[in-house]
Computed example of a mutant assay.
Amino acid sequence: MSESPPMNPMAGVAWMLASGLTFVVVTGVVRYLGTDLPAAQSAFMRFGWGVVFLAPSLLTLWRVGVPAGLGPVIAYRGAIHTVAVTLWFYAMARIPVAEVTAIGYLNPVCVTLGAALLFGEKLAVRRLVAIGVALLGALIVLRPGLRVIEPGHWAQLGAAFSFAGSYLFAKSLSGKMPAGAIVGILSVTVTLGLLPFAVWVWVPMTAAQVGWLSVVAAAATAGHYCMTRAFAVAPISVTQPVVFLQLVWATLLGYFAFGEGVDPFVLLGGTVIIGAVTYITWREAQMKRRAVTPGLGEAKI
């Protein structure tokens, strides 16, 4: 029986820092590509490249086969993840990078609510308060009534809920399939799910655009790898707060690369959401029970 790797908090923080930086590369490239490509086409190319990068895992899955009874779960997850990434690509091309990042922090909150509704997980008073605080943080970011809520904001909110649904389906697959196979088959199902929509809106692409989308896929794959290594060598309660730096990097990227203003309300709201989700995760660790709520950043493209 293989032993668990020894705990190394500093290494965990370093891996999570690397993960955050790679995901900022993802957001930066997608923002740079802008609205020249339809969201469905960009997402299709990203996951198409992902299939190429994950080919070894897919070859293993092809030889072993999918365990009986898991086909519907895999299909449902692929469908909802298809919706999630399309909405994310749409939002990323239209609203500031920092706002996409801050709203995306709602993913774990949506998972917590979904777990309670679908799996009957108990929501203690403290968790309900933390969820309320996180939603308050979202209101600080969006400021409804004080400014116009753009379609990109609604798309990112939809992406947060959709990514949460994908994560819940993934939880039901964990332990029944190897982790690499779960990620690989997700790339296949999402690529197939996006195909008809991408064909419907397809526009000619330049070699540079194809190349940049390969960078998106490579950076996303590297980000998930770094995150997995972080969770393997350090408690989530240690690595979770590091995810806050993604909002800092995203704000700096938006300011220096795209001329986006620094919005203190976005920084404040993102901090409030992160604080609430970190508290929920810490409580899960303290109670030593199987967590349903994912760490910040686990629901990524």
Score class of each variant (00 low, 15 high):
residue 12 G to H: 01
residue 14 A to T: 11
residue 34 G to A: 04
residue 36 D to S: 12
residue 37 L to K: 02
residue 46 R to N: 07
residue 46 R to M: 07
residue 51 V to K: 09
residue 52 V to I: 15
residue 54 L to F: 12
residue 57 S to A: 15
residue 59 L to W: 10
residue 59 L to A: 15
residue 60 T to L: 15
residue 63 R to S: 11
residue 76 Y to M: 12
residue 80 I to K: 00
residue 82 T to G: 13
residue 86 T to A: 04
residue 86 T to W: 00
residue 89 F to M: 05
residue 93 A to C: 13
residue 95 I to M: 09
residue 99 E to G: 11
residue 101 T to Q: 12
residue 101 T to F: 06
residue 110 C to G: 14
residue 111 V to N: 00
residue 117 L to A: 15
residue 118 L to V: 14
residue 119 F to H: 13
residue 123 L to I: 08
residue 124 A to W: 11
residue 126 R to Y: 03
residue 127 R to I: 05
residue 130 A to P: 00
residue 132 G to R: 00
residue 137 G to Q: 02
residue 140 I to M: 11
residue 150 E to A: 12
residue 150 E to H: 14
residue 156 Q to K: 08
residue 156 Q to T: 14
residue 157 L to R: 06
residue 166 S to A: 15
residue 173 L to V: 09
residue 174 S to V: 05
residue 175 G to V: 07
residue 177 M to E: 00
residue 185 I to D: 05
residue 185 I to Y: 09
residue 190 V to D: 10
residue 193 G to Y: 04
residue 193 G to H: 03
residue 198 A to Y: 10
residue 203 V to N: 13
residue 204 P to A: 02
residue 205 M to W: 03
residue 211 G to A: 03
residue 215 V to N: 04
residue 215 V to T: 06
residue 217 A to Y: 01
residue 218 A to Q: 01
residue 221 T to P: 01
residue 221 T to I: 13
residue 232 A to W: 02
residue 235 P to W: 08
residue 237 S to N: 07
residue 238 V to G: 04
residue 241 P to V: 05
residue 248 V to T: 06
residue 252 L to M: 05
residue 254 G to P: 00
residue 256 F to K: 10
residue 262 V to G: 10
residue 262 V to P: 10
residue 265 F to W: 11
residue 272 V to C: 02
residue 273 I to V: 08
residue 281 T to W: 04
residue 284 E to D: 15
residue 285 A to S: 08
residue 292 V to T: 15
residue 295 G to R: 06
residue 296 L to G: 07
residue 298 E to N: 15
residue 298 E to K: 13
